[in-house]
Design a binder for these strands. Sequence first.
DNA 1: GCAGATTACGAAACGGTTTTCGGAAAACCT
DNA 2: AGGTTTTCCGAAAACCGTTTCGTAATCTGC
Lengths: 342, 342
Amino acid sequence: MQAGSSSSPKVTTLADVARLAGVSIATASKALNGRSQVREETRQRVFSAADQLQFSPNVLARHLLSGRSGTIGLVTHDLEGRFSIPTLMGAEDAMGTGRMSVLLCDARGDALRERHHVQALLGRRVDGLMIVGARPDPRSSLGRDLPVPVVYAYAPSEDPEDASVVTDNVAAGRIGAEHMVACGRERIAVITGDPTYGAAQDRVTGAQAALRDAGLDILGGSALFGAWSEEWGRSATAMVLGQHRDVDAIICGSDQIARGALDTLRERGLDVPGDVAVLGHDNWEVLATNARPTLTSIDMNLETLGRRAARRLFDAIEGHPTAGVEAVQSRLVPRGSTAPKA
Amino acid sequence: MQAGSSSSPKVTTLADVARLAGVSIATASKALNGRSQVREETRQRVFSAADQLQFSPNVLARHLLSGRSGTIGLVTHDLEGRFSIPTLMGAEDAMGTGRMSVLLCDARGDALRERHHVQALLGRRVDGLMIVGARPDPRSSLGRDLPVPVVYAYAPSEDPEDASVVTDNVAAGRIGAEHMVACGRERIAVITGDPTYGAAQDRVTGAQAALRDAGLDILGGSALFGAWSEEWGRSATAMVLGQHRDVDAIICGSDQIARGALDTLRERGLDVPGDVAVLGHDNWEVLATNARPTLTSIDMNLETLGRRAARRLFDAIEGHPTAGVEAVQSRLVPRGSTAPKA
DNA sequence: GCAGATTACGAAACGGTTTTCGGAAAACCT
DNA sequence: AGGTTTTCCGAAAACCGTTTCGTAATCTGC
């Protein structure tokens, strides 16, 4: 039987430790916290008593004095999705080292649920809030009159005075296009997803800028927008091949689209990267490493984003708030689908 | 600028509400909690004051009397992985309705880190613990002498007296094989992943049992073990076709393997599901729905698993602990890759 | 005007830690 | 030995905001 609520061993408190060590509570506290007014021998006795009882101090009681709870509230909008998880991991990582804990809530993209969760978290006296969006488009602010600092991650707040950490999608698009240019490609098509996503637009903008810097333009003059699916990648690639037989590179707005592109190219008997180089976005490992050939992709460094957001939140809690949007740079992860042109 | 810790509006307390409503703290408390000893007119005044101040009661202080914190600790071992997230979602879902909150920690498969997190969570006086594993194989118990109930999800505890909730992989394997049999398939190959995974073995066991019930056996006499990758799916399928040209169904241990199988079959000019039916496991949407044809798969109902685990944890917290392993059934999600044989 | 019901209030309790401050014991000096 | 300093330890207050208990005040009906 699981340790039930009745027969369960009690939680050990500082009083238990003090009793076992034969000292007062005050002395035990001072010994464990490295205060100086304790004899070394006594300190050792307290420490061994604490070890023996597996004592872990009651954080709530400790923070009673300081007025802080030592927890932050994390509201995510996309727990099942792919993008919030690495962000969450980075944040969790940044907590782990200190003695902050994370209260997790999933608002599922619903503003009402979000408000409800924020209220509940404030009721638990969190020291700060981190709001992780589902997609990179700006979102409405929670307002400036909250009693604790807030940091928005992935999806920035519309209010520029709020603190936001996002990915730099324009730069990401630029990185991809520059890589293609560096590989000696000159007839570069761009296939991307849902045009209502700011990220889709931004990546195209960045790619286009880089191509123009190299004296080129997107093949056909503009990017092909569609959906974030392999099917769209397949059909869009077929379209590109129909209009431009001599395409030598395809930049895709996501790894899914890139997988579709690779399939169509292989079925048409074209060699990747020999004839056509293919680049994805998001660096979704399971898609990129299983592709034939393995897929070069742009990684958004979401863990870094999460860590940065957490750090900014800590700073704000410590009394050093910062305003504005901070962008985290992406990085190229080269694999088999891109190579210098023979 | 983000509301800093100094200039921020104070958190409103019950005392603020009482002052604004012109009543005592005691009366305000009773009014908000629906106690009877309050005049209706007074109650309304308190409510409107609470609304006006956006009052949310301090949960920690409230639980001071009851001795409970209203939080549970959730330790996951696989935050970046695919399996713990739906479990976590189910658990979070079950919390949401009540007024429990979740403290999240990621132990990353490290036992030491796990102990550390458990200690930290106990220090926060969580009412219970939920341990979510990374893979379905049994794991060592945290022990029976913890001061709060524990439920193990996805990965069961080795101690049968602990409370565990897992997927029934034998039954899952059976469901898949029965589906193939129901489709009139008789020459059924099984390709699966890493043989050190209990789940891989169990699914094969279940499939084999179902086939024997139908008077059949796995094509070639035994399943092919390898890796959880598309590449293995491709090469293993090639192997199967080399030895058994007349195979009419392939059961794959994961959707990744199934994707590989589909690729090889298409390249050999075989029709799916006309010539060969293909079945995956895990129902990984992004893989299953983007496949050609879309992939029939077995869903482990992980959200249900998470909800069940949460429910059992609540029950234990309420004083009704249950021991032993509970299995959650999987379900078939039919898509385009399986169909009755013509 | 009085019993009984209703409504409101002051104060205690809840929890475990940190911290302050006073005092005891030991060490040191003359 | 006596005085002074240093070292070490313990009793008790403080911290938070809520709930609840006992009691007082007000109202209702006869």
